[in-house]
Amino acid sequence: MIELCNSTDVVEGEILRRDVDGLPAVALTRHEGQIFVFPDTCPHAEESLSEGWVEDGRVVCGVHFAEFELGSGEVHNRPAGCPNLTFFTCEDRDGKVFARLKEEA
């Protein structure tokens, strides 16, 4: 797992973008206390999800308004060809957020 930030940096209802060496940027949000980590790049038109917002337990892309359920990544209000979003496994450990960003051996 890769350390991303302090868990206090992840604020309820807001989206935080993190650049990770050698990997695509990731985004974090907190909803009802729980932290979620997902790719910052919308799978539809490759726009930044951190420029969108969280509404009713969904991440909303600010460009074409695709909505992804936090956790399952199921897409709603789906633009043509837009797949579900794949969320990363993450942990809040000793005040730090860790996530599994790629298959690890």
Binding site: E46, E51, V63
Partner: peptide
């Protein structure tokens, strides 16, 4: 949330600014 053109999916915010397009080519 904004206004999206039906033709090529160009998306504009409430302030009129272009947020993005649909083709992954313009950027």
């Amino acid at each position: 949330r904004g206004f999206i053109c039906n033709y090529h999916g160009w998306s504009f915010g409430l302030d009129g600014g272009l947020r993005g397009t649909d083709g992954k080519v313009y950027e």
